[in-house]
Structure formats: structure tokens, C-alpha cells
Amino acid sequence: MHVDVFDQYHFTPSRVHDLDPRVKVLITVLFILSNALLPDGSWPAFALAWLLLLVANDQSGLGLGFTFKRSVVALPFTLVAVSAIFSPQGSPLAVWDLGFITLIPTDLGLIRFFSIVVRSWLSVQIAILLVATTQFPDLLHALEHLRLPRTLTTIIAFLFRYLFVLTNEVFRILRAREARSAGLPGVKGGGKLSWQIKTTGSMVGQLFLRSYERSDRIYQSMISRGYIGHIRTLNPHYMERQDWLYLFVFILFLVIIQFVGWVS
């Protein structure tokens, strides 16, 4: 398996791709914040937020349905919110007696549940759009400009770089494990649990040591090129009129959405 499945970036020439990454990060966070601020059940406002998202999708040149298609990642977690349906604050809609527990779905509970699902679903889509339109190194630069500690952004930069190298190593290790565990007659697929855990543990240990030794060599190659403790990079990003304009218009839309959400 090739690890390119990790690449979330989709290039098409578009205004959204060209935006300063700081603007995109801010827009993303503000959009999620705005969703969180909207009261439960403010469907017109949620609908407007979705509209805004569709416009962003369209502007990105990736197609109206781009983030929608990928938003299924958010689905499994909605299970956790199901219990909100049984909020005792609203008026009961039914009574389900399961023997050991009595469940009473209520109208407010339902509203709460669907509001959570919609918020989460809208938020995950803008995050998808962010990484689809922004190269990860630019995202990192944006975070640096937004005052994340250098130590942290550097760790994340290394993580991003070696994610691919190390996951490839994991695939190699896994393939070796499969080759070894498949051929044994009389052992049912994968072997015994204790064996599984022990091999997994030593694989983790092995991977750790290889990674550690790699970090040693990386360090050597860094000091060979003059590193003495402070990472320096060039961040060629400048906010232009267009960037400010987009930021301003987007915030304006969010204000309208909030207004709709709280007034209706």
C-alpha cells in the first residue's frame, strides 16, 4: 500500500487555494466557533452556514459536493450523542421500557441531537476544505505566524515529514508479520491473542528503536548544516488586499448567520 492516501491536498487553480494560509486557518476556526455559538435548533442559521460552505466549495474549484462526500468521517461519533435524544427537559414523545432502563425520547432531546450532528458535520467539512486547499507546509507557516511556539511547529513539521517514512516502515513490519503468521498449519488466523500482543509490543519496540536511531542520523545531518539549537525557516507569506477582503466578507457572513440564529 502506498501512503499517498495520507495526502489530503487537492490542487486546482482557484482563489481559495491562493488565499493566504493564515486567512484560511482563521476562517476555519471562526466558522467552527460560529457553529458552536448558534443555539440549538436554529435551522435557518445552520442552513445559511451550509450555504456559505457550498460557496466556499464552489470557489475552491473542487466541486460543490467535495467536502460533503468526504464528511462521512464524522458519522461514527454521532453515536455518542444519541443519548441526548432522551433529555428529560422537553416533553416526552414516547416511552421505551427496555427492562433495565426506561428511555424517554423528548422533543428538546431530538432538537439537541440533530443540532449536535449538524454542527459537527458542518465543522468537519470546513476542516476538510482547509487541508484540501492548503499545502501542509503552508498550514505550518500559518500556525507559526499565528504565534504557535516554534518548538511545537517544528515537532509537527518533523511529524509530517516522517509520518510517511515510518508508516511505510510499519507496512513492511506488518507484511513480515503476516508472512510469518499465515503459514503455520493448525493455528487459526493471526495466532493466539497473547502471541499477537507480544509481537505487536516488540514491533512497537522495534519501531521505536529504528525511529530513535533515525532521529540520531537526522540530528547529525542537521548539525552538518549548521544547526545549533534554533530552527530557522523562511515564511514567504504576505497578506494582500484580496486576503483581507476574503477575511472581511467571511466574517460579515458569520455575523449575519449569528444574527439569524439568535433572532429567529
Binding site: 549548521g226 525557516t233 523562511l234
Partner: peptide
Amino acid sequence: FSPTVFDDVAFGPLH
């Protein structure tokens, strides 16, 4: 060890 080719080639001169 850097995310982009540019960052890596610039690393030496910058440092």
C-alpha cells in the same frame, strides 16, 4: 528532514 524541498535546501544557508 523538512516538509518541502525548498525548506531543506535553504536550511544550510539559513543556519
